[in-house]
Nucleic acid binder design. Structure first.
Lengths: 207, 207, 207, 207
DNA sequence: AATGAATGAGATTTCATTCAT
DNA sequence: CATGAATGAAATCTCATTCAT
């Protein structure tokens, strides 16, 4: 994206320096959560952090590097949390169904506290209006899918169409995202076959 | 989020005007794909578009409105494509399994060409490095999940652990994202129950 | 010295733009003459020029490029003047001695008006104190040379030792400079031989 | 030029202190040679010198004083070298011609090693590009002078025009420089007369 | 003596926007 | 309609210098 240096300028050996770095990252995080991306500036960061602009530039060679540090630390934290969640999953005396339920439960419990910050990162360019727009579109999609699959109603295990299609749609979106941005080892064809199996297993009455 | 006007200044009745608007949007799109959010400026847009800054302000009251137009048009296009894909799905003489396969196929075919732009919108602040970082973390997660579910191996219909966990992980992520940003009508508890069903149906050998 | 771009940003096609560029260069020249290198800043330039800082950056991508333009234009002017001086030298009905006298006269008449600016460029880093220091040193040198050549006094055509040694010293310095920075086609040995001839011809009584 | 104090803060009595001072001066010299004037800063000096900023300010009251020390020491060295060169000139049993040849030889031997630093001081604001430009101009001048003096060819003792004009041109420039910046006791008219004699003695066949 | 964290004025530069032509 | 010169507030960033440890 750019050829600028993005690693912090010093390793902050001294304790005071370390504190300062943390203060800056914390201030940045707050501003990001509160006001979002677009209005973030080094001036506002140092004002919030209560340090001088010179101090900021002692530790970060440029604005980008602050964001870099922040994202890295955020992702690290999330990943740590997630890993720990999985590793501390106590599956003893649980059958498969229960194990999965527990996993899902934990998964949905993750980073509730980071929700705002996360949303800034994932949706930064998307305004509230666009969000509404997306949701509207999803509703149209839901309707279209409902219509399309109505003929199969007899074979489908569906209590609540909206909810079911929500599940299918976002599962699809998530996996599609994974295919686009992560580099799965499997081929697209294999993955599509698996996804079909996933959805069929979910929808078909004789699971 | 702000009280600025965000609709294009003119409806671009004349053809030339329409062209100009499209040129500007196109230039913006390119810059967004190439350099990302942060370095986008009206000056760079007009330079790329080959029109004068004055012209830009003939058609857009401010910078935000360009973005707005662009996002709207992108989302519209995506939604249109998606809707059309679904509506033109020819399910006659297809059984449920085939229907689902077709749906998945179409779904994965979407916006290959919009990948870059999409990634800018979804991950705007996240650099390529962070993406790598995320993927690495996902691999760790995959490993942890594998270890956790190994005891159930006998009950699981798994040909390829990595692929299977990829599916589960990103389906989970997608639905979690849906819960966070779209506002599903169902409660979280209901959704979690459904997700468990989804995954159980997929993993359990007696599907 | 740096890998920054140093050519003016636009060609200033329009007349107003051209004027602006000239105004900026002129203001820079003045400031350079008056206050010298070290305190030169874009802020001061635009203040003096009576244009806004934005305007400056429309035409010059960075501070360095202003200096570059200025030096280029200064050197160009000097070279033009010098060339013209030589080319308009009217040597008709002049013998060699007269021709040389005319040449020297013209040469010393050059850029009297650019003296200040020139000195800023040639001596920018040297303060007034250092200048004094240099002159003192030159006087010591003069004395040493005088002592050294006193034994030859009988053979030397010298009216005024200080003046003569001044000539010899700065002729030497000038040619040495030429050898260091311009790349003469002759070898150093050849040049040294010529210089000896030059000085011998000047000093020896039987010229 | 400014009323700042410019002498080193301490006389560096202790040996360690002396080392530190030298280290700082050396680092400054290197940076000056490598990157030139404009980008020189105390921070970069201490980084290069491997001492802390605090230490620098133990020995130098301000940035200017470092430069002052450096220039003083450079000029001192150059002057010392020059003086010594002249004073150790062993002219016994040498006739005038030989004496001059020896002088020239020694003179040209000076500060080959200080070339870079010297050029920074003499041409501080002039980039490599400008140097090229100057040289090009000198070639044009050479050509013009050649044309001008061609009519006198019969009276001129010239083996090689380029070399001869090189000598004349840079002798002229050197003396002109001396007139501008050193303050000779002689009047300009006197000096011009001498210069004409110098050149005439050099060029005229009956020297 | 030496360190290096911190400062903040001020330098450089960007950028959305206006307006005369 | 289109142009692009001009604006200036605000952003990014530098750098000489101080001071607590």
């Amino acid at each position: 994206m750019s050829n600028k240096k993005i690693s912090p300028r010093k390793n902050g050996l001294q304790d005071r320096a370390k504190d300062t770095i943390e203060t800056i990252i914390e201030a940045t995080t707050q501003l990001l959560e509160e006001k979002g991306w677009m209005s973030l500036s080094t001036n506002k960061i140092v004002e919030r952090a209560g340090v001088s602009i010179g101090t900021l530039y002692q530790y970060f060679p440029n604005k980008e590097s602050i964001l870099h540090s922040l994202v890295e630390s955020l992702f690290n934290t999330l990943a740590q949390e997630m890993l720990q969640t999985i590793e501390t999953l106590d599956l003893r005396e649980k059958n498969l169904k229960e194990a999965i339920e527990l996993l899902v439960d934990k998964f949905f419990y993750r980073h509730e506290n980071k929700k705002n910050l996360l949303s800034q990162f994932l949706m930064s360019s998307v305004s509230v209006e666009h969000l509404k727009f997306m949701i509207q579109n999803d509703q149209k999609l839901t309707q279209a899918l409902k219509n399309k699959f109505l003929p199969y109603a007899g074979e489908l295990r569906i209590e609540n169409w909206d909810r079911t299609i929500f599940i299918v749609l976002y599962a699809l979106k998530g996996i599609h995202f994974g295919v686009l941005f992560s580099k799965p080892k499997a081929t697209q064809e294999e993955i599509k076959k698996e996804v079909a199996t996933l959805i069929y297993g979910y929808l078909n009455i004789k699971h």
